[in-house]
Computed example of a mutant assay.
Amino acid sequence: MHSQRFERRVTVTRHAEERMKQRGISEADLLELLECGGVRYKDEIRLWVAKHFEGRSDNLICAAVILEEHLVVKTVMHHFDWRE
């Protein structure tokens, strides 16, 4: 998988894959999330990407990622809240 938005190959950790299965989030959903979701940076390399998906009652869907040589998806969450 490749992210045009972040101009990097996407690497999904085993933990993130397990969470995606548990939460019914497909690879296509993850790619849409990464390409179109809102972004909030924790620092220069760590960030969250979140997006509302129509038809889901557990929104926002969020991926915690690291910008390295690859875009590393560490985990995928639901019921995410942007509030600090």
Score class of each variant (00 low, 15 high):
M1W: 01
H2A: 00
Q4Y: 06
R5T: 01
F6P: 00
E7V: 02
E7W: 00
E7T: 03
R8G: 01
V10Q: 02
T11E: 11
V12L: 06
V12D: 01
V12F: 01
V12I: 14
V12C: 03
V12Y: 03
T13Q: 07
T13N: 06
R14Q: 03
R14S: 02
R14W: 01
A16K: 00
A16Q: 03
E17K: 07
E17Y: 00
E18W: 01
E18A: 08
R19C: 01
R19P: 01
R19F: 02
M20A: 07
K21V: 03
K21E: 12
K21F: 00
R23D: 07
R23K: 13
R23H: 09
G24E: 14
I25P: 01
I25C: 07
S26K: 07
E27C: 03
A28E: 13
A28P: 00
D29H: 10
L30C: 01
L30I: 08
L31G: 00
L33H: 05
L33S: 02
L34C: 06
E35N: 09
E35D: 07
C36D: 11
G38K: 15
G38S: 15
V39F: 04
R40C: 04
Y41D: 15
Y41F: 14
K42C: 09
K42S: 13
E44M: 05
I45A: 10
L47D: 07
W48V: 13
W48A: 12
W48R: 14
V49L: 06
A50W: 14
A50T: 09
A50K: 10
K51Q: 13
K51C: 05
H52M: 09
H52T: 11
F53G: 07
F53H: 09
F53R: 11
E54F: 03
G55Q: 11
G55P: 10
S57C: 11
S57M: 14
S57Q: 15
D58P: 10
N59L: 03
N59Y: 05
N59V: 05
L60K: 09
L60E: 12
L60A: 09
I61L: 10
I61G: 09
C62L: 11
C62I: 05
C62F: 04
A64Y: 15
I66S: 11
I66H: 06
I66K: 10
E69I: 04
E69H: 09
H70Y: 05
H70V: 03
L71P: 04
V73N: 05
K74T: 10
K74I: 15
K74N: 04
T75R: 07
V76C: 08
H78P: 02
H78A: 12
H79F: 13
F80S: 08
D81L: 07
D81Q: 12
W82K: 10
E84T: 12
E84L: 11
